[in-house]
Design a protein around this nucleic acid. Structure first.
Lengths: 247, 247
DNA sequence: CGCAGTATTGAAATTTCTCAAGCCGAGTGG
DNA sequence: CCACTCGGCTTGAGAAATTTCAATACTGCG
C-alpha cells in the first residue's frame, strides 16, 4: 500500500462532507457556504485506536477521511461485538450530537484519518439551514437500515450466506465511496474480527471462507477482498442493495 | 381486557405526538402550534395486518396510538425476521419520509390503532420549525440504538440472556410509555414470533423461557409479561438502559 | 532467521435445530 | 353441558450445526 493512499488534506474534509451531503439532498449555495464555514481539525489514528468509548460524552463528531473505522459494543464479560464499519465519507457517530452519552465505542480498524467537527457548530448549521439537516438526517437513516440488515444477517442466515452478505455490502459501499480498485477493495479485518461482527466463532469464519473460496466467489487475504463472481455471491447471500438507498 | 383499553381519540393523536416530541427536545409555542396544524387520519388494524410492505413507497408516516406494531424483513425463502416492536407514541416508519422505498415491512402484531401523517406535511413542518425536526431526529436515533442492541443481543448472548434482555427492554420501554400495570405489561407475541425476533427456533425459545420461569425471574403467558425479579433479570441479561437514552 | 500474529486443521464436546407426538385451554356448535 | 377443534405450548430424542481446544502451518516484518 503506498504511503498516503487516499489520505486527504484539511481542505479536502469540507469537499468530502459537501459531496456526501449533496448525495442525500439538494443543497443551494447558502447551504454549501454554511457547511464550509465550520471549523474542524483532522487527526491520524493508529490501528485499533479508540476514538470515543462507550459511556463518554463527546463534543465533536467524526467524519472518516481515510481508512476504516468500526463501532462496537463491549459486553460485561469483555466480549466485543462489532456493529458496523465505516469508510471515507461516513459520519459514524453523528448521533452523539443529541444522544449525549455513547452507547457504544468507535475505533480505527487500521490506520485511519478523521476530521472532527464540534457539535455546537453542527447544531447551529442544522438550525440555520434545515435542508442541510435533512441531508445529514438521511445519512443516519441509511445507517439504521444497515443495522436492520445486520440483525437479519446475524440472526437468520447460514454462516456461509452471512459472510457472503457481509462481503457484498462492504464491496457495494466501497464502490459507492469510490474506493474500488478493479475488482478488489480494502477490508482490513482478520478472521477473529469478522467473527465478532457476524456472531460466529473464528473457526466458523474460517470454514465459511473456505466454502466461498472453493466456489470461486471471492478471494480474501491480508485485508484485501476480491470479487471473483459478483452474481454468484449476491445470489448466495440473498443480497439486495435496496436497503442501502443509493439515491 | 376491556373493550377499548388504551385506544385514543383523533384529537389524542396530536397530544401524544406533542408530548413525545417534547420528550426529545425543547419546543416553543410556535413549534407546538405547527405540530397541531397537521392533518392526520386514524386507522384500526386487525392482528397481523400489514401497514406497509417491503418495496412500497408510502406517502404517510405512522404514529402508534394503541396496541403493538412490528417491523420485519422477509427473506428470499419466505422466512420472517422481526426487527423491532413499537408501542404507543412510537413512529416506526418515519424514515420513509426521505428513504423512499421501504426496505422492510410494518405490521400490527395484535389489534392496533395508528394515526397517519402525510409525508409532505411532516417535511414542511421540519423546514419551518427546525427544533421540531431535531426532536423527531432524536427519536430515530434512539431507534437506531435499539437496532444496535438487537445486533449484539442476537449475535453475542446466550439464548437465556437473549430472551431476558428482550424482556427487559420491552418492559422498560413500556414503562416509559406509561403502559405498565403494576409489575406486568402487554407483550402480544407467541413463541414462534419471539423466535423470529431473537434468531432462535421456537423450541429454543420455549426452553429458554422455562429457565427464566424456573429461576422465578419472569412470568409470560397469553401475551402478558410479569416481572417477578427485575434485579435478577437485568443482571442475567446484562441489561443497561443507557442505550434507550431516556432524557 | 526468528518472532508474533494469523490462519488452518482435526476431533471432541456442546449447543441448537428438527421432527413428531402429546398436551392444554379457549372458543364452537351440537 | 360436553365433545370437538384449533392454535399454541411442551416434551423427548436423534440429527445437524457450531464451538472449543489444541496442535500445526503460514506470513510479513524486524
Amino acid at each position: 500500500m503506498s504511503e498516503n493512499q487516499g489520505f486527504t488534506s484539511q481542505r479536502g474534509a469540507f469537499e468530502l462532507l459537501l459531496s456526501k451531503a449533496a448525495q442525500h439532498g439538494a443543497l443551494d449555495a447558502a447551504d454549501k457556504t454554511a457547511i464550509r464555514s465550520m471549523r474542524s481539525r483532522t487527526r491520524m489514528l493508529a490501528p485499533g485506536e479508540d476514538i470515543v468509548c462507550q459511556g463518554e460524552r463527546p463534543e465533536v463528531a467524526v467524519l472518516v477521511l481515510a481508512g476504516m473505522v468500526g463501532r462496537y459494543h463491549t459486553l460485561q464479560n469483555g466480549d466485543r461485538q462489532y456493529l458496523s464499519f465505516h469508510v471515507k465519507g461516513d459520519m459514524p457517530d453523528i448521533q452523539s450530537l443529541y444522544l449525549h452519552v455513547m452507547d457504544h465505542s468507535v475505533c480505527a480498524v487500521d490506520r485511519a484519518e478523521i476530521a472532527l467537527f464540534p457539535h455546537e457548530q453542527i447544531h447551529h448549521l442544522f438550525m440555520r439551514r434545515p435542508p442541510v439537516g435533512v441531508a445529514f438526517w438521511r445519512m443516519t437513516w441509511v445507517d439504521a437500515a444497515i443495522f436492520r440488515q445486520a440483525i437479519t444477517n446475524n440472526s437468520a442466515r447460514s454462516h456461509v450466506a452471512r459472510l457472503a452478505h457481509f462481503f457484498c455490502e462492504h464491496f457495494f459501499r466501497s464502490r459507492e465511496a469510490g474506493l474500488i480498485d478493479g475488482v478488489a477493495c480494502s477490508l482490513p479485518l482478520n478472521q477473529t474480527q469478522l467473527g465478532q461482527s457476524l456472531g460466529m466463532s473464528m473457526v466458523s469464519v474460517n470454514r465459511a471462507l473456505q466454502e466461498l473460496r472453493k466456489e470461486k466467489l471471492v478471494e480474501f487475504r491480508s485485508g484485501r477482498l476480491s470479487m471473483l463472481n459478483w452474481a454468484g455471491l449476491t445470489a448466495l447471500a440473498g443480497f439486495d442493495p435496496t436497503y442501502l438507498h443509493v439515491a
